[in-house]
């Protein structure tokens, strides 16, 4: 029990990708990968404290009706946990302060950014300084993208990687910042761990469709200064086996493991060496 890596995937209110995220966690070696409905957390029967790795999966929280993840962020901030005097957000901040891992994908990333969890300059996890807004195309799109890894990033999930190929599936993925200053902090801190790039993983790219949404500086994924809190628009859980690759029927040398799995393996590896 003591040596188990314990992952939690929150679901409910429009989260859609919980099953495949749990699968990715398990494939990466996490002994526990519990899909937990938010009602379970709010009832107090399940507590974030019992886990190491929190996954905020893709979907459409509350239909993204007030803007992507806005209503979801409002719920996390204000909904109280039964039988205690804390909100769910208090558990979340305690989780972060304990040095544990949080990864948000797509809608999960939108949720994190809108709660202020990312990029969290100066470890301020409560002030929103960036956002994810409507794609320049004005449309939802499902398309695969090449992502260049910043090797100098503190991001623990992308350690040892050069580039990954993953699908985006969103209508609101355009990363924007409040000010040039925020962008400067992100770049100076190498917090933009993933950027949309060309097919050779050479350089970040602003052109559509390689940059599918018009994100500033081609930013696709962002971490905090610790590298443990991380969010990205592309879906790593959607490429954990070679048959997920859109060209697996023509590229005969693809490894069995998909590139997205690497991010989860890094997370599990980190927990094993630092948190257990």
């Amino acid at each position: 029990m003591a040596k188990q890596v314990r992952s939690i995937i929150i679901t409910g209110n429009g989260t859609n990708c919980e099953r495949e995220v749990a699968n990715a966690c398990r494939l990466a070696g996490s002994e526990v990968a519990d899909i937990v409905h938010i009602a379970e957390l709010l009832s107090g029967r399940v507590c974030l404290d019992d886990y190491h790795f929190l996954n905020l999966a893709g979907g459409f929280l509350d239909g993204d009706d007030l803007g992507s993840a806005k209503a979801g962020a409002n719920r996390l901030r204000h909904a109280s946990v039964k039988g205690s005097d804390e909100n769910l957000a208090d558990q979340l901040y305690r989780f972060i302060e304990a040095g544990k891992l949080v990864m948000g994908v797509c809608n999960g990333f939108q949720l994190m950014v809108k709660m202020g969890l990312l990029p969290a300059h100066g470890a301020d996890f409560r002030t929103q300084t960036a956002t994810l807004s409507h794609n320049d195309s004005g449309r939802f799109e499902d398309r695969w993208t090449y992502l260049k890894v910043d090797p100098a990033s503190p991001c623990i999930y992308t350690r040892g990687l050069d580039g990954v190929y993953l699908p985006v599936r969103h209508g609101e993925g355009k990363f924007m910042v409040r000010s040039e200053e925020v962008l400067g902090q992100i770049e100076a801190g190498h917090l933009a761990a993933l950027k949309y790039c060309d097919a050779d993983y050479d350089a970040p790219i602003m052109d559509y469709p390689q940059n599918p949404n018009g994100s500033v500086n081609a930013i696709a994924g962002v971490c905090d200064a610790s590298g443990r809190i991380f969010g990205l628009m592309p879906h790593p859980e959607a490429y954990v086996h070679r048959t997920h690759h859109p060209r697996w029927t023509r590229e005969e040398t693809l490894p069995e493991e998909g590139m997205g799995l690497w991010l989860y393996q890094n997370a599990v590896q980190f927990i094993r060496s630092e948190l257990l």
Binding site: R139, F140, D142, P167, R169, E237, V240, H244
Partner: peptide, 22 residues
């Protein structure tokens, strides 16, 4: 086709769009 999420649930092995340029 691109406006529909055709990959959520991570089970789509032969996708609606295939080939060298997807």
């Amino acid at each position: 086709v691109r406006r529909y999420d055709h990959e959520v649930q991570a089970g789509t092995v032969i996708k609606p769009l295939v080939g060298v340029a997807n």
